[in-house]
């Protein structure tokens, strides 16, 4: 007695023991299948505020679901599952589970900003999608995007030394994103650069890459800066 309407039930809502005996009765397989309901039983009241704490999400509460964003969306034209209006709605009510179901496509926003341009209530849907993508990274729902790794490495070096060393940023960025440290394009790039640079500069670059000198009297500035950024973030996220 298979479930005829099986296509109407998500797999994760089916519970079944393939082999099971209860009170001496064999109820293996479909004889014990239970379906868990698909009903939404509560909202997460704090979620909207949380997303508003991320850059781009500030105006999410203004949305009235007209659908202009989705209708104008470049990605929606490719994939009807890509629906900014819907994600904004889910964000407003705090339906995180539904949002997470689309985790693999929300980041695909190409930032054409047609939605932001057309929105009659100034919601900035493009920003909301960025905010959602960042929230998912932060929660570990999705892996960090390469750009996030780059940003982090960049900021780290600033905190430590008050300046960045291009070579080191690149090296660590490749490491964190699992890319080979020596890349063909990089070789060509360095080779060309070397041809035109005075030797003195080249030596200084090599030295700096190894010793990463700090900005003059940087002292505790890095820590202060780091604290300030942290505070700002916390204030924004509530």
């Amino acid at each position: 007695m298979a479930i005829h309407e099986k296509a109407l039930i998500e797999d994760e809502r089916l519970q079944q023991h393939d082999e099971l005996v209860v009170d001496g009765v064999d109820v293996s397989g479909h004889w014990n299948t239970m379906i868990s309901p698909r009903t939404v039983r509560d909202y997460d009241d704090d979620f909207e505020t949380k997303i508003q704490g991320f850059a781009g999400g500030e105006n999410v509460h203004r949305c009235w679901q007209c659908g202009s964003c989705t209708n104008s969306c470049t990605m929606y034209a490719q994939n009807v599952q890509f629906n900014p209006r819907y994600w904004i709605y889910l964000t407003r009510l705090g339906m995180k589970e539904e949002l997470v179901k689309d985790k693999d496509i929300i980041w695909q926003c190409v930032s054409c900003n047609k939605c932001t341009n057309i929105c009659p209530k100034d919601v900035k849907p493009e920003g909301v999608m960025k905010a959602l993508a960042h929230w998912m990274e932060e929660e570990g729902i999705t892996e960090k995007a390469p750009s996030t790794h780059f940003d982090e490495e960049f900021a780290d070096q600033i905190y430590k030394t008050g300046r960045i060393e291009d070579g080191k940023v690149m090296q660590n960025f490749f490491k964190k994103t699992g890319q080979p440290l020596v890349q063909e394009w990089l070789k060509v790039f360095i080779f060309r650069m070397m041809k035109h640079l005075p030797v003195k500069h080249l030596m200084a670059m090599g030295f700096n890459t190894i010793h990463t000198p700090r900005t003059k009297s940087w002292g505790k500035t890095g820590d202060v800066l780091k604290n300030y950024v942290r505070e700002q973030k916390e204030a924004a996220h509530g």
Partner: peptide, 11 residues
């Protein structure tokens, strides 16, 4: 013939 539904719902 769709006993999974009936038992899930009633429970």
């Amino acid at each position: 013939s769709e006993r999974e539904f009936t038992r899930s719902f009633t429970m």
